[in-house]
């Protein structure tokens, strides 16, 4: 749990937009995992914790009675068919640059970039964000992500792909290159 607690906190902040609430949710998820699944194999803990964290986040929303927000979060984001000039391959192949020596300006720029990335990740629909963060941030494979999200592997791939497209497009519009 020590290795994932910070990522879990950030991931929950993206969902609930409230640091105190995110801390409570993460703590609740840790307690649930420790009390109910401590006897399970250690290999299952990452997937179990992600599932518990997702359920705890949903419970928080239910308790807040933000039905409209939940419906918006769980709706699929429509793809931008009207923006025909956007090419994912072109965007991704343009990614370049290395950190190298970092000045104060570069530090500030990096922090601004991070804030923009976090903002765009938070804007993603909940299922896309979950799939994206579990696949690339938690480094879970497709099968583990599908088990944690309670959906099929095909759905996980679809959610990830849409999330990547949406993030790439949003970051390109902001002039951010990774």
């Amino acid at each position: 749990m020590q290795a994932v607690e910070k990522r879990a906190f950030k991931r929950t902040v993206y969902a609930v937009r409230d640091e105190d609430a995110a801390l409570d949710i993460v703590q609740d998820a840790m307690i649930r995992l420790a009390e109910r699944y401590a006897d399970r194999p250690a290999a299952e803990w990452p997937m179990l914790f992600q599932r518990i964290l997702s359920n705890a986040t949903m419970d928080w929303f239910r308790h807040q009675k933000v039905r409209k927000g939940v419906m918006n979060l769980f709706s699929e984001m429509e793809s931008g068919d009207g923006e025909s000039d956007f090419d994912l391959l072109e965007t991704l192949e343009d990614q370049s640059g290395s950190l190298g020596f970092e000045s104060a300006d570069e530090t500030f720029s990096r922090q601004q970039t991070l804030l923009s990335i976090e903002e765009e990740v938070a804007k993603l629909p909940a299922r896309q964000r979950e799939a994206f963060l579990m696949r690339y941030w938690e480094e879970m494979d497709v099968a583990e992500t599908a088990a944690a999200m309670g959906c099929s592997e095909g759905s996980v791939k679809t959610h990830c792909s849409r999330a990547v497209h949406a993030l790439a497009q949003a970051l390109k519009l902001k002039g951010i290159s990774l």
Partner: peptide, 12 residues
């Protein structure tokens, strides 16, 4: 897609 995702994850 995977490369982009991993780069975003590294920043996160």
């Amino acid at each position: 897609e995977a490369r982009f995702g991993l780069r975003v994850a590294a920043r996160l």
